[in-house]
Design a binder for these strands. Structure first.
Length: 105
DNA sequence: CACATGACGAGGG
DNA sequence: ACCCTCGCCATGT
């Protein structure tokens, strides 16, 4: 496993409840602003093992990146709402309000 | 080593 | 706003 991947895991585990981060943001904080796809890979493979708050990671448009017909969609939405995050029309989250401002933002 | 795969992102039509 | 294409890069086969 690469350092970049470990950094991704670390950044995701840092996201506080009530806030969200985008794939690109996580990738950038992990040192590679073009590693968004690796972030998704980490969520797909390491959530169990590292107990990551996977639900706090959303797409750059402020929307959940899972397709709506999959079970994880509602599951994620519910978790976020229970943490105080609000969804607007089209299930869009207002990043200007809920996006996590990490260290080097 | 070559090729395919993604819970992505930005840009263009 | 919707759809498509292309760029990206760690991983898996």
């Amino acid at each position: 496993m690469q350092q970049f991947t470990l950094d991704i895991i670390q950044q995701i585990s840092r996201i506080p409840a009530g806030k969200v981060a985008t794939y690109g943001q996580i990738a950038a904080m992990a040192g590679n602003h073009r590693g968004a796809r690796q972030v998704s890979r980490v969520l797909h493979t390491c959530t169990q093992k590292y107990q990551l708050p996977w639900h706090r990671v959303i797409g750059a448009a402020g929307k959940i990146s899972i397709s709506k017909d999959q079970p994880g969609y509602q599951k994620q939405k519910k978790k976020l709402q229970s943490e105080g995050i609000e969804f607007g029309l089209g299930d869009t989250i207002d990043l200007s309000i809920f996006q996590w401002q990490g260290q080097a933002q």
